Amino acid sequence: AGVTVHSDRGSQFRSRRFRRALRHFGLRGSMGRVGACADNAAMENWFSLLQKNVLNQQQWTTRDELRLAIVYWIEARYHRCRRQRRLGKLTPIEFETIMKDPACLAG
């Protein structure tokens, strides 16, 4: 409930069949604006990193194996290494280390 599927304006995403599938699974459709080619750029970049670093690394025998590999990559690699503008170009680990109270670090 409450999940939004955002897509570009491709014909496959505007089709009756796709919209019916969205309704069937209780999802809400969302499309980028006409002529706004950068709408999906951030997610396309993220998925290309996921594909390069996880999906293309080996053949996965089960969905659970792939799911664990994706979760591991997100939590152990991507979030820990990615510098974030909101954190002053620091990684989340660097930010937490700097922002922690020195008394907490001593304990």
Score class of each variant (00 low, 15 high):
residue 43 M to A: 03
residue 19 R to M: 05
residue 47 F to M: 04
residue 81 C to R: 11
residue 71 V to S: 06
residue 90 L to P: 05
residue 83 R to D: 06
residue 61 T to C: 11
residue 60 W to G: 08
residue 96 E to A: 13
residue 11 S to L: 13
residue 69 A to H: 06
residue 15 S to I: 05
residue 83 R to I: 13
residue 73 W to N: 01
residue 47 F to S: 08
residue 49 L to N: 08
residue 21 A to R: 09
residue 57 Q to F: 01
residue 14 R to H: 13
residue 61 T to L: 13
residue 103 A to D: 15
residue 85 R to H: 09
residue 36 A to L: 10
residue 52 K to N: 11
residue 58 Q to I: 14
residue 66 L to K: 08
residue 11 S to H: 06
residue 64 D to I: 13
residue 36 A to K: 06
residue 18 F to Q: 05
residue 49 L to A: 04
residue 10 G to K: 14
residue 67 R to E: 11
residue 8 D to I: 11
residue 28 R to Y: 09
residue 101 D to R: 11
residue 14 R to F: 06
residue 11 S to D: 05
residue 10 G to W: 15
residue 64 D to K: 07
residue 87 L to H: 09
residue 74 I to P: 01
residue 35 G to Q: 04
residue 28 R to C: 10
residue 34 V to M: 00
residue 69 A to G: 06
residue 46 W to G: 03
residue 102 P to V: 11
residue 22 L to G: 03
residue 96 E to V: 06
residue 54 V to Y: 02
residue 63 R to S: 14
residue 54 V to N: 04
residue 8 D to Q: 06
residue 52 K to Q: 14
residue 95 F to D: 06
residue 86 R to D: 03
residue 25 F to W: 08
residue 12 Q to W: 10
residue 44 E to M: 09
residue 94 E to S: 10
residue 40 N to Q: 04
residue 8 D to G: 02
residue 76 A to K: 03
residue 18 F to L: 07
residue 78 Y to A: 02
residue 15 S to N: 05
residue 94 E to I: 11
residue 97 T to N: 09
residue 86 R to P: 02
residue 41 A to H: 07
residue 23 R to C: 08
residue 99 M to Q: 13
residue 76 A to G: 00
residue 31 M to T: 10
residue 88 G to M: 08
residue 39 D to W: 04
residue 75 E to M: 02
residue 39 D to Q: 03
residue 50 L to D: 05
residue 50 L to F: 02
residue 71 V to W: 04
residue 81 C to N: 09
residue 75 E to N: 02
residue 82 R to P: 13
residue 83 R to M: 11
residue 13 F to S: 05
residue 54 V to L: 03
residue 19 R to T: 10
residue 78 Y to L: 02
residue 62 T to H: 07
residue 30 S to C: 01
residue 10 G to R: 14
residue 66 L to Y: 12
residue 23 R to E: 10
residue 72 Y to F: 00
residue 74 I to W: 01
residue 72 Y to N: 01
residue 61 T to V: 14
residue 102 P to A: 02
residue 86 R to T: 03
residue 71 V to D: 00
residue 65 E to P: 02
residue 86 R to M: 04
residue 90 L to S: 11
residue 43 M to K: 03
residue 96 E to Q: 08
residue 54 V to Q: 00
residue 49 L to E: 03
residue 52 K to G: 04
residue 73 W to A: 01
residue 55 L to N: 01
residue 29 G to W: 05
residue 35 G to W: 03
residue 52 K to V: 13
residue 90 L to G: 00
residue 45 N to S: 13
residue 38 A to V: 14
residue 59 Q to E: 14
residue 34 V to N: 02
residue 102 P to Y: 12
residue 59 Q to F: 12
residue 80 R to H: 11
residue 56 N to G: 01
residue 98 I to Q: 15
residue 99 M to H: 14
residue 68 L to D: 09
residue 53 N to R: 00
residue 73 W to H: 01
residue 39 D to E: 07
residue 95 F to H: 15
residue 9 R to E: 11
residue 29 G to H: 07
residue 68 L to F: 06
residue 64 D to M: 09
residue 70 I to E: 01
residue 85 R to W: 12
residue 86 R to Y: 03
residue 26 G to I: 12
residue 92 P to L: 05
residue 78 Y to Q: 03
residue 50 L to R: 05
residue 16 R to S: 03
